[in-house]
Amino acid sequence: MKKTIAKVLPKIIGNGLNAVSYVAPKYASAKALDIFATPRQGRFTEKHHPFLDTAKQLTLPHDNHDIQTYNWSGSKTTIMLAHGWESNTYRWKQLIEMLQQLDYNIVTLDGPAHGKSSGTQFNAILYSEFINVVANHYKPDAIIGHSVGGMASVFFQHKYQNEALQKMILLGAPSEFTNVFKNYVNMLGFNKRIENGLNDLVLERFNYKPSHFSAAKFSKEIHLQGLIIHDKGDKIIQYDEAELISSNFKNSTLITTEGFGHGLRDDSVNKAIINFIKA
């Protein structure tokens, strides 16, 4: 029953806002953007706390936001981790434990409206600003981003060209914001009024059209060592997004997996990450 409701609900919402768009198109588009930017999951549950409590926790300010960070101290270089949509720091538990065994200094953050960080809405642009604040504080040598955390990492480095950073690892990362938007429009069955209104709102709020926000395009100006890992069967972010980033990220290597899906939760992936960091 729950699965049936979950499948039907997006279309019900889409049809409702489509109807509203005939009389109040800007309102309908604004509601659609709010839904798009509001995570339904990603906060912590009780089972997460024992692991998180093993880290030193620090809250950093950014404008009107509080950014929650975690640090597992080590004597080696600093590795920073940025999770994806509707997730949080806990998603890195297995990789963190492997890095701890090798005595790396590990830093993570919760994205906007995720984990213990403040806010009710999320977007990759704001997330990239969070990443910049945390990177300036902890000075990581390498950054690892999963999904939109990878996209936000590219946005951050493209804009700020952080000089301490040497390596970037992107896991299942999307390239084109237009594709992310289009998938959302298709999932909810929005009409052209709302689709065009969404594009107009992005331009109004961020001074650029959605097509400007391209990890592939931005990666042309990133001069780090890069590792891109993407699964052929990723149903959330298509594999060709990784190929597009890889073709533009000059000093990068693309590793293709099969059977791990979007989450890429496998020891072989973690080992490939560690080998890249070690090199």
Rank of each mutant, 00 (worst) to 15 (best):
N179C: 02
E86A: 12
T69V: 12
L201M: 03
F260P: 08
Q94A: 13
I96R: 02
S175L: 06
T54R: 12
F276V: 13
F213G: 01
K220Q: 14
K192W: 05
K278P: 04
H49C: 00
K3C: 00
T45Y: 11
V133I: 13
I236L: 15
Y22S: 10
F122C: 11
H262S: 08
N191C: 10
F155C: 09
L17A: 11
Y138P: 14
D53L: 04
V148R: 01
I144Y: 07
N132P: 06
D200V: 01
T4E: 08
K26N: 15
V8A: 14
P112L: 12
V134K: 00
A37L: 10
K217N: 15
G233C: 05
L170N: 05
K56L: 13
I79K: 04
S219K: 02
M1K: 11
L165F: 01
H262P: 10
S128P: 12
D231Q: 08
N88W: 03
A30T: 12
H137W: 02
K2W: 14
Y160P: 06
Q94I: 09
D53M: 05
K232I: 09
L52S: 03
L201N: 00
V20P: 05
I194V: 00
K217I: 13
K182W: 04
W92S: 13
D231P: 03
N196A: 03
A164S: 15
K47I: 06
P174K: 07
K11R: 10
N88R: 11
Y70C: 09
A82Q: 15
I194D: 00
I274S: 11
Y184T: 04
H65N: 15
L203G: 01
K47Y: 06
T69E: 13
T59P: 02
N191K: 09
F177S: 03
D34I: 00
E97F: 01
W72A: 05
A37I: 01
S175K: 04
